[in-house]
């Protein structure tokens, strides 16, 4: 029974090879363990030595994998920090663009048209920070208002 159990364990170990030298050690254990189970002290020592080596190889591999995973964890944390900072500055940039190119021109045009409708003939669109397209719209609105004022005067 013990021999069968040992053989089953060796089979399981053979199907679970992940490291270098593991296969070789398993084969050496396979050679020695039968003699060890029959009471051969030298074979027993060899078997214990090989099993210890097999165990040690796997323990080292776990430590290495652990170190790698810790490095990944640190790298991941830094990635999240830089990503969050990047998204923050990107958000700030787009907020500024949104305000400068959409909201402020809309408010300016609305204010100018309201002023004109309530009798202020001199209020015109202005905004040196505006993009060219918005400045073009300002100019056209100002020209319409100029023409309207000139028409009213004549």
């Amino acid at each position: 029974n013990t021999s069968n159990d040992f053989e089953k364990l060796l089979e399981m170990a053979s199907e679970n090879i992940t490291e270098e030298n593991e296969g070789e050690l398993i084969e050496q254990i396979r050679v020695y363990y039968k003699y060890a189970l029959n009471g051969d002290i030298e074979a027993l020592e060899k078997t214990v030595e090989k099993i210890s080596s097999l165990s040690e190889i796997n323990r080292k591999a776990i430590n290495t994998a652990d170190k790698v995973s810790k490095k990944f964890a640190v790298a991941g944390s830094w990635f999240v920090v830089f990503w969050a900072a990047g998204m923050f500055f990107l958000g700030m940039y787009y907020k500024r663009v949104f305000l400068k190119d959409i909201i402020y021109p809309y408010e300016e045009i609305n204010a100018v048209l309201n002023a004109n409708l309530t009798g202020d003939k001199f209020r015109r669109c202005s905004g040196h920070e505006a993009i060219d397209e918005i400045n073009g719209i300002y100019s056209k609105i100002n020209m319409i208002l100029d023409k309207k004022s000139a028409g009213l005067e004549s």
Partner: peptide, 28 residues
């Protein structure tokens, strides 16, 4: 990370097998 976890799991299983072999040898 899943790959690393897989490696750790496999090696841990091998260590478990080694421990069972030791137990069998001690019984003898």
């Amino acid at each position: 990370a899943p790959a690393v976890q897989n490696i750790i799991h496999k090696n841990d299983r091998s260590i478990g097998i080694c421990e069972k072999m030791f137990v069998l040898l001690i019984k003898v």
